[in-house]
Design a protein around this nucleic acid. Structure first.
Lengths: 211, 211
DNA sequence: TAGATTGTTAATCGATTAACAATC
DNA sequence: TAGATTGTTAATCGATTAACAATC
């Protein structure tokens, strides 16, 4: 249960399990799912599922499986998703726009979706003030103030590669703790910030190998 | 050099190395980069870089490092990126739109960007016929015909979760070989199709653990 | 009870790191 | 030559899989 004791590979699979459980949740209380079925719907082996769940302290019943509602709550708790998580987006171009709308829409339509978009930033003066589903675009200069005012600690970076390191440096100063980086560049960050990267082109190039 | 002999973890890092080399390429021929510098700019250890490059058959010179132009070409060749790769997108909502524009824009502005968007598909009759930077949106019903006609073997799925498995089944029938899936669901596919998944919500939930 | 499925251990497999002789 | 950096091996580390006793 200690932070350091759960390997990142395991943490990475928890949201996948959670996603499966969420699609099952209508008919849930008292209901049960086996590691076989959960694994099948997650693309993970049954043994792996049981190992992962054991590691995070989620246990089932022999002969039956895991109680869906209990498991769902447990996974949410481990992932910090039992409280609302505020997110800011820096860079509101094509991709930033799409990401913003995606998060806002899921928050609006799914009870129990705990990611809330609270701020948008861009450097283009033309864009400042524009509302995306009610959330205004602020100038990047006000990032530090807004971060403190609104209290978000998670940020999505969707600016061009050239601007990304400067943005990351700003994040570090503002005390941001987690960054999802869509800019196609490896960012330097203090160790206290957790950075994950995702890059469409890299994914496509990776796939190209298998053609 | 045999397909089966290069582990996927290694393949996954090659586009990252390539991305770094690309930013260096202006002043390249005859120029050289060490595993230390390449590793630093990639977020990978120097030992790892040397191991990876050795595995794919890219070699440097002791005391100097790797010739940038030669290494770039080698990596492109290994990744199949020395030929043009045609890509289709299924699902042209927010995300599909953004992905389409991103690929088209990079293809238009970067010499040496070998991913070419050749087709877009959606099921919404309102969208059919619309052009995105010159590429028309076709009805999903014509997917099979268009895939054969245009000859693309790589597809991005950006439809809602409910529609994704049916789309994947269509891909299998049409002989698609590589799929990048943005739908938040684990898709079943024949083993001959390589499927990679990317899901914004899962990335954010993963990060939430570290808050 | 009989059948099913867990939780956990041990075995296997694979990836990363360290180290250094070779050599440019 | 002296300094730098590769290529590769061996050691370490960590993750996955198999198997099965425990037990619902």
């Amino acid at each position: 249960m200690e932070k350091e004791s759960i390997p990142d590979v395991v943490i990475r699979r928890l949201p996948i399990y959670l996603r499966v459980l969420e699609t099952l949740s209508e008919d849930s209380y008292g209901n049960v799912i086996s590691s076989f079925k959960l694994g099948e719907k997650s693309g993970v082996s049954p043994a792996q599922v049981r190992k992962d769940l054991g590691i995070v302290g989620a246990f089932g019943k022999q002969g039956l499986g895991y109680d869906i509602a209990i498991l769902r709550n447990k996974l949410k708790h481990v992932l910090n998703l039992d409280k609302e998580i505020k997110v800011g987006i820096i860079g509101v171009g094509n991709l930033g726009h799409a990401i913003a709308r995606y998060i806002i829409q899921r928050y609006a339509t799914e009870r129990d979706y705990h990611l809330k978009l609270v701020a948008l930033f861009d450097s283009n003066p033309e864009a400042i003030g524009e509302l995306i589903n009610g959330v205004p675009i602020d100038h990047i200069h006000s990032f530090h103030d807004k971060a403190l005012e609104l209290g978000f600690r998670m940020v999505v970076i969707a600016v061009p590669a050239e601007a990304a390191q400067a943005v990351m440096d700003e994040c570090a100063i503002a005390g941001i703790e987690a960054v999802l980086n869509f800019a196609p560049i490896h960012l330097k960050a203090p160790k206290v910030i957790r950075v994950h990267n995702t890059d469409l082109s890299i994914d496509l190039m990776h796939l190209a190998y298998y053609l």
